[in-house]
Design a protein around this nucleic acid. Structure first.
Lengths: 197, 197
DNA sequence: TTTGCTTTAGAACATTCGCTCTAGAACATA
DNA sequence: TATGTTCTAGAGCGAATGTTCTAAAGCAAA
């Protein structure tokens, strides 16, 4: 194997940086090429299209975020405590990986799905499966059912809320866990009195 | 004044629709022109550029959302109750104006500020002033100070959380206030025990 | 009717953008 | 050394995109 001067991860890092700083519209191949110091030919040697490059950037961020949440030990006998732990893990991850978090905030999955993606489309559609399974099992443990409404509620408490908590801190540049201690209480408030402890 | 066949609002509606359905990258002048049934010449007669058209679309949505929040009677003697009322108003507005809400979710202010905007840039930078003043006064009433951290906390509780509550419902097409009754409790949880009632 | 202004209408233009193509460099293996 | 493969490198191409331009239609006022 001949030398590989530029790492794929470095290209993804630059793509992420461009999306976050210049917006989705500013994420052109040339902008990414210049930010990374990588010629366009080398970019297209690794990625079939700009759409796939952006999708890979997004998928990497999404998977990292999920890994963190899925690594939390969950006890369905103590669903509320588990839910709090998952929410805290999500929040901590946001502060530890601010660039990935900002990317996920500014590049929506819907935006990607509107592009021409080929086989990658399937990955985008299935990437959330494990997390959704976790949410469903927590919903069942908490409420005795796992319909759309209860699953959305758990997603709100364990994914959206932690991201919301982290969002403004990241935008203002602060990287310290400002309101971390409030999160568990908020999670309980969202999940409600009816939830089994 | 000669006849005006197409209303400006109709163009903004179509721009919003295109952004929401096809993403920021799909929001081209031609796409908006076709969605609205308005020739590009007529669009450019009203807006100097695509960037300004998108900015106006965003500003209209943002202002409508703010009007609703600012119309809530706020008593600084009862800041927690006022905070709850503002949060509920935000949430209700999200469900009543789903298209504007989806637009604000998919078109970030940072994305707009990265474009060439001319005089409109100033409007984008000042549009949040009244809301920020309200948040600051609530922060002061709740915590006795209105530094960046306390203001962010109030913003989280009164703006981000209501949007988060509404977001998944809107994506799944549901237009009924599913978890509205949980919002006040969650607001109290975020604002914390230390807050003065 | 005539004049003048606003708006419609879309063809045409210039630029940007995504992508391809070809040449050569770097390295593994024979 | 010779050969084959992978990757770098960036000039260049065709299509898409933002914008302009000109002609004419509609309406108000003179």
């Amino acid at each position: 194997m001949p030398r590989q001067v530029f790492s794929t991860d470095a290209i993804l890092d630059s793509a992420r940086e461009v999306v976050v700083t210049r917006g989705v519209r500013g994420a052109t191949v040339e902008a990414i090429s210049r930010a990374a110091g990588v010629p366009v030919g080398s970019i297209y040697h690794r990625f079939n299209s700009l759409a796939e490059l952006l999708a890979h950037t997004w998928l990497r961020a999404a998977r990292r975020s999920q890994e963190r949440a899925l690594a939390v030990p969950v006890s369905l006998e103590q669903p509320l405590a588990s839910a709090e732990a998952v929410a805290l893990a999500m929040y901590d991850h946001c502060l530890e990986d601010p660039d990935d978090t900002l990317l996920l905030d500014s590049l929506g999955r819907a935006e990607l799905l509107a592009m021409e993606l080929g086989e990658l489309r399937a990955e985008l559609e299935t990437v959330n499966e494990r997390v959704e399974t976790l949410m469903a099992s927590l919903a069942r443990a908490l409420y005795g059912r796992a319909d759309r409404r209860t699953r959305d509620l758990v997603l709100l408490a364990l994914v959206d809320m932690p991201h919301g908590f982290a969002h403004r801190q990241l935008l203002s540049g602060a990287r310290t866990p400002a309101r971390r201690e409030r999160l568990p209480v908020a999670v309980r408030a969202v999940l409600g009195e009816g939830a089994k402890g």
